[in-house]
Each structure stands twice: as structure tokens, then as C-alpha cells.
Design a protein around this nucleic acid. Structure first.
Lengths: 114, 114
DNA sequence: ACGACACTGAACCGATTGGTGCAATGACGG
DNA sequence: CCGTCATTGCACCAATCGGTTCAGTGTCGT
């Protein structure tokens, strides 16, 4: 009874946010504490505008939360804990292992819970 | 800074392959056993050409393996076990939890220096 | 008040994506 | 050999993506 199929839009947004090494770097950086757009942009040699777009993508996916403080924007890790993304991958891992067993003729528990 | 990630292009391909509900459906379907392009396309009301492209994306990410048998192409789950994708998400989860620890430490520090 | 600073909005650009339709190509069945 | 069937290659399309520049907007320090 794995609720692996959440709202597709949510999973879409999370995975496509993660599908970019710059954005994964941003998350890693924010793991060390909050940062401004400028601080995030600098190590990538990117314009502020470009970085703002990346941060926006992460924010839309819930992976980053931002707050305007003074003239700069403080970015920190968001509320999305990637549980759904993790759960879907776990589900896939189980599919894969079932394939390894070589017994496709198994009663499938998850089949109805799409 | 980020030796936590493997080849970033590999991760890029995996996550962007997963960032589409049609492709996640394909993986789920293939968990029940091999299928042809036509069998995969039919439930999505998609053209064969369109489905071939999706399968190609999954194959490039290593999530699907295909083999031409007779006049049809048999698609099955591939060798990529999503361990890297899973590992990266776990890494992020640890960052997130450290963020909480950091907050806790911060408040403790505040209390101590007060 | 003024200038520097941090960001943002808009317009633009080339490449990629997700899809289509149409014309091969190659395998099967008779 | 012939017709059908499954797939594929190619050209095309609109939308999105990752990035830029340039012109604001609002805030900070003096």
C-alpha cells in the first residue's frame, strides 16, 4: 500500500529541479547555512538574474525557502523533505528486485494503487 | 566541495528521466514484465514515435534496456538501480536534518551567551 | 540627499523537450 | 512474392530551459 503516486506535478517539479548540477550545488551550499543570491551566484560565475531563476525553480519545488531581508534575499533549505521522491525511487527499486527474482508471474500488490 | 555526487551528467539524466509522469508510468508498467513500444504507447494514447522517444530517454539513463526481437522492440527494466539518485537524496536529507541541528545549536548558543 | 549595492522584470537567444504526421524499413503470414 | 504490421527516421511545431543584457526598484551607508 505504497502511496507512491502523489500529485504528479509535485514529483515532476522535484525531479526536474534536481536534474541540474547547478541546482544540486545550491542545495549542498544551503546545507551549510543560508545564503544570498549573490553568494550563491559567485562560485558559479553566473549572473544574479540567472541564479534568481534557479532559486525560483527550487523554491517552486519546495526545496528552498527565501525571504527578502533588506536589499538582499536570504535563501535557506525549504520544507520539502524529498520523502515523496525517495518513496518513488524505493518503489522502483522493489520493482527492479522483483525482476531479479525472475518471477514475473507474481501477484502484484501495487497494481491497483496507481 | 561536492564529491558526494557521482558523474553529474549521470544524475542529470536519471533525474530528468524521472521528471515526467509518462516515463514513471512506463517504469511502473515494466515492473510487471517486458513490453513492446506499442503496448507501452496504447494506454497513453500516444503515437509510437512519441513512445519511442520516451523509451530512448529512459534507456539513455540506464533505467530501461531494449532489444529488437523480430519486428517489435522488447523493453524491460535496465541495469541502473537508482542507487546514485537515492544516495544524493539521502545526502540532502542529512543536510536538512543538520539544518535543524544548526538551529538548535544556535538557540542553545543564544541562551548560553545571554 | 546621494551614490553604491542587491536584486528583479522584461526582452531576447539558442538548445532541448514533448509531441505530431508521413514515408521508409524490415519481419511475418500465407 | 505480397500485403500487413511494428517500428523508426526525418521534418516540423510550440513550449520550456538555461542563460544573457539592460533598465529599473528599493535599501544601505555616509
Amino acid at each position: 500500500m505504497v502511496n507512491h503516486m502523489v500529485q504528479h506535478d509535485t514529483l515532476d517539479r522535484i525531479y526536474s529541479a534536481l536534474a541540474d548540477s547547478t541546482r544540486r550545488d545550491i542545495l549542498t551550499r544551503l546545507g551549510d547555512g543560508p545564503a544570498s543570491i549573490g553568494e550563491l551566484a559567485e562560485p558559479h560565475g553566473m549572473t544574479l538574474t540567472g541564479m534568481t531563476k534557479h532559486v525560483r525553480v527550487l523554491e517552486d519545488a519546495g526545496l528552498v525557502r527565501t525571504e527578502k531581508v533588506g536589499r538582499s534575499r536570504q535563501c535557506r533549505l525549504g520544507e520539502e523533505r524529498l520523502d515523496d521522491a525517495m518513496a518513488w525511487i524505493s518503489f522502483y527499486q522493489r520493482l527492479w528486485e522483483r525482476r531479479l527474482d525472475g518471477l514475473e508471474a507474481y501477484f502484484t500488490l501495487q497494481k491497483g494503487t496507481d
